[in-house]
Each structure stands twice: as structure tokens, then as C-alpha cells.
Design a protein around this nucleic acid. Sequence first.
DNA 1: GATGAAGATGTAAAGCATTACATAAGGGAG
DNA 2: CTCCCTTATGTAATGCTTTACATCTTCATC
Lengths: 334, 334
Amino acid sequence: MSTIKAVAARAGVSTATVSRALSNPEIVQPETRARVQEAIEALHYAPNHAAKSLRMLRTSKIMVMVPDVSNPFFSEVLRGAEEAAQGAGHSVLLGDTRGDETREAQYAEMLLRKEADGLIFLGHRMPPSLARVAAARGGHAPLVNACDFSAEHGVAGVHIDNSRAAAEAMGLLYSMGHRRVGVIAGPLESHLTRERLAGVERAAIAAGAERGLTIVHADYTIESGLQETTRLLAAPERPTAVFCFSDEIAVGALSACRARGVACPTGLSIVGFDDVRYARFLDPPLTTVRQPMAEIGRTAVKLLLDILAGEAAPREPVTLAHELVVRASTGPAS
Amino acid sequence: MSTIKAVAARAGVSTATVSRALSNPEIVQPETRARVQEAIEALHYAPNHAAKSLRMLRTSKIMVMVPDVSNPFFSEVLRGAEEAAQGAGHSVLLGDTRGDETREAQYAEMLLRKEADGLIFLGHRMPPSLARVAAARGGHAPLVNACDFSAEHGVAGVHIDNSRAAAEAMGLLYSMGHRRVGVIAGPLESHLTRERLAGVERAAIAAGAERGLTIVHADYTIESGLQETTRLLAAPERPTAVFCFSDEIAVGALSACRARGVACPTGLSIVGFDDVRYARFLDPPLTTVRQPMAEIGRTAVKLLLDILAGEAAPREPVTLAHELVVRASTGPAS
DNA sequence: GATGAAGATGTAAAGCATTACATAAGGGAG
DNA sequence: CTCCCTTATGTAATGCTTTACATCTTCATC
């Protein structure tokens, strides 16, 4: 490929002028600029990013670490992040960790090697090497957690009020007369799970229905939702409603109902979480807690860019609005 | 951050030795290596990637351009690609184009600026600046198309036999006695759409049912599937079956059926395409053409890495196996 | 006409790691 | 003991761009 030197030679100027013509056109004389432009086009010149990055100590890249890109929730958040990054002249480095600590550590390393200016992580675990960075720089570390925020890390974060959202979902079920309610939660290691469970319990206590509460744990996949729901349905005193911590789990729950001949919502009311794109198109359309997924992604990027721009005050975690969307998968307890 | 120079100073060796200790440990004396290692850890040294990349003229990055990350088909392919890239010591730069030519061109630029070693694109359009590269270097350009391959570009590609797959799907419907069949295809600009339509027509002719064929176009979204199916159902001689060019479209079709009180499959048989993760959990479980999504992603990366490794012969496009998966959304024509 | 400011462009250092080539030390063979 | 080969390490060039600082014009002002 051609270098800036070749362009400079062809245009009969110095490399400095070429550089200026590209990054600061108004300070070079129009005729000079035109000559440079001609040379650039003739030689198909494109500035070498590595050299630029080395010199400027910035990469214009943001690493986004997700547990599973093919999960519709994460992919929507990712999309929002990608959009915002792109809009701000950055690009997204994708890290799919599969929930694996080794992979997480590897991606975290990339930040230290300066392959990205900052990192957004969507899991609940912060790799140790990042924890060190965060500890050293506090809220100014170029790290943002999305969704599964835990204040103890001292890093910036975006999330919804998981506790309240869960309480509202449970409240809906209780208000419809359900007393035996199953909750298919995520893994307990996750801060998010614990937050939501706190909301669940609060709602159960408020409704005086703690005794009817059954909590089981799944891993957010359809299959685990199917399995746990099947188990719940087989119990002697089976629940009349389930609250699933993701729409994927809810899809599994619906599937379990069909397999056992239980109608939804008459036999079992189902509430999901996330409101992924297909939730409203399920049969029956799913009652669920909508998270503003794209907005979460965009906000995470915005926070990160603010930090990179060196904004003064350490960031408060941002809480975005959720919404309980009532559709046809919930009905009165029979 | 600390540099290799700092490490060298602390370990009492030259920077060359530090570099060797990292990339070629066996050629440095164990004691020296240990001293270097100690210094690296003490200083939390991590090699600056920009410098390395500048020097080595490689970035260890692969750009993957998708029309929409949040589409389950693309996100599965992406996941496969990410996995393979990661396994080969590369990382993935994500470009979500939203089908927008400007964005496509922007991401293509990144290849020219050497922000990535190669590019995999999942749309049907090849940005002009890449077409130039491809023309210049033929099958040796670091470009791979996944899914929507057109031989005319002269770039490497991975795909399934779309024409045959479509013919098989239609064949299933015809074998079940359907004569009036709707096809909800993708946009005609796409090579993939034209391939599949060729298969559709072949099957229709073989079944002597061309007259009963209605072809409409959607954009692969649930909403467009819903809309087109609604339209088909409203026709005076409405079809008894529809073949959708994606599972997302099929979800829309199912939704349209429910809205109009048409039972599936008794009132309308539905065939999808892709076999995304939730297809089998729909109600009824969706008959669909399975594409090996993760495998497509992995193969695309493999092809790209082969090209980057400078393998001799220009690559033949790779055709992977598909499979018609018959579930409950199809039944005999009534 | 001299002085100074403003504007345009050039010179060269800096950013950091890799590696070809040079050097030094150690060991074996003659 | 000398010479050569091997092994371990150092020296310095290289990859390409950006930008502080220097230089040179040009023009306005007194």
C-alpha cells in the first residue's frame, strides 16, 4: 500500500501537509489541498491505522464483551452499542465469552495491550486484571458494565431497576389472584439475579404469599426454561404462574406447557423478562418486562466515551426505565 | 503504561531480549527469561498492540460485516465466526451495516486503513472499494462472503445450496398435496433470493403447479412476514401453504394466522428457513430448512485465514450441507 | 521602510515493538 | 593453543503518522 510519504512526494509537499490536509483541511491552502487530494486518489492512499494509533495513543475501538452474541437480549444491546460507537467514530471489537473466565481474561488483556480504548462488559464477572485497573483509577477507568451492575466494583454502569421490575412482575401475578408462583431465576452468582430475587421476595411478602413461592435456577436458555418449567408442573402443588428471568426461559416455559397439555394462560400464566423482538409474536403473546436494550447499549457507549474524554466527576450508575408489558400470557388464577 | 524499554531496564537486558522472551521464549536463557518475567509482572507490562501491528504489518483482527446483529440468523453466524477467530488468535471487529451502503463503505474503508487483516461480509452487496481490491487480487483478496455468495465477484465464499434447499422445501409442500403456495421471498437485489426463487420455480414446474404460485417480497423481519402473510390470506384464492425465506418471516406468518383465526397447519402450512434456535419451540414447532449457521461462520473465518496465510490456489466457494427439518407447522392440504 | 502578526508549509522527534545483523562468550576439534 | 561453530544477547533500523517547533512569505501598521 502507499504511504503518506508517497502521497507527499507526488503532491510535492511534506508529509506534514498531507497529514494536515486530511485531519485539518481548513488550515491548508485550497490549491495545495487539491494537489494532495489528487495524489491521495491516484495512489488509493488510506492512512495506516496502526501508525496513527501508535502516535495518538488512541485506537478508536471499544471492546464489548458479551456472554453470548446469539442470545437475542445481548445482541440487541450490542446493536445499540455498535450504533452509538459508529456514530461517535469508534468501532466495536466483539468478545463472546461464553461465560468462560479464561476467555474473559483474554479479552480483558486486550485492553491492557491497548487494542481498545475502553471496554463494556455485559456479564456479572469482572476479570481480575480489570479489577486492578478499576481499583487504581476508580470511576475513571475506561470500563462500563451494562445490565449486571454491582456498585462494589466502582466502575460505571447502566442498568434498569431490576429489583423494582421484578417486584412489579410479581405484583401483576398476585393482583390476578395467583398464590402459588414459580420463579425461574438466573444463576445466583449474578448480582442481577440477586437484585431481582430481592424484588420477588418483597412482592411476595407484600402479598402475603411467601409460602407459595418456589424459586428455581436456570441459565437463561430456552432449554433450561423448558426443563425447569416441566419440573415445576410436575410438582404436587403446582404453581399457577411462573415468572421467568428472561424471555428465552419463557419460551421454554411455553414449550413445556404444550408438551404437558397445560394451556397458557388458563393453566399457567407466564411472565418473561426483556421483551425481545419475538416476545409479542409468541402464542400467546408474552407478558414481559421490557428492558430498553438498544438504549442500554447506547448509554454504555456514551458513558465510556465520557470517561475517555476525561470528564471530571466519577460517574453515577445510570438507571434506565423499564416497563411491564402485559400481553396474553397472563390471566387470572383459576 | 510501561513500555518494553522499562522492562528491559529493570531486567538489565536489551529490549530485543524482552521481545524474544515473550515471543520466542526457548531461545533465551532460563535465568534471563526469569528476570524478564519478573520485570514484566512487576511493571504490569503488556506489549502495545499498535506498535506491534505497525511493525509486523498485521493486526490479528477480522472485520465481520453483518446487516443486523440482532437478527438471530446473523448473530449465530457471527458467533461461529467469533469462536473460530478467537481460536486462531484473532479478534473480531463488528460492523453492523443496517443494510446501509454508506455504512458498508465505511467499514470497507477500515480494511484499507489496515484496521483489520481481512473482511467477512454477510450481505449481498460488496462495497465498491472492496470490489476494486477483489478485482486486483482475485481470489487472493482477504475477503470472504458468507451466505449470499455470487461467483461474479471472484471472492471466496461459504454458503449452502440455496436453490436446492428451496426446491426441497417446496417439494415437501407439493408432496403434501398443496397446490396454491405462497412464497415470501427476500429482496430481489439479493443473489440469494434469486437462487432460492430458481429452486422454487423448478419445484413448481416439477409439480405442475406454477399457476398456483404466488411470490411476494419481504425484508426478512417478523413484521414484514406478518404483513405479507396477512395480504396472502386476504386473497380470494388464498394459498394453503407458505414458504418463508427466513424463520423470522415465518414467525410473522404464524402471527398473521392467529390474528385471522387461521389454524396452522390445518388452515395454512408454514415452512421457514434457517432453523434459528427458537424455531423448534414455536407453536406449532416450525418446519424449516436448517442452515449450519455456526459452521458457516467458522468456515468463513477458516477461508479467510487460509487466504491470509497465502495459500496458493484461489478458493473454490464452499457449499455446506443444509437439512429440511420437518416439524408440525406443515400438514396435508385440506 | 521597518516591525510585527498571521498564515502556510517544512523539519524532525516521538510513539513502541520486532528483527536482521553484529558482537561476545563458550566449547569442541584439530 | 588456535580456529570455528554455536548460543545468547545487544545495536540499531524499520514500520507510518502526527505535531511541536522552526522557517519563510505576505500583508498591514506606524
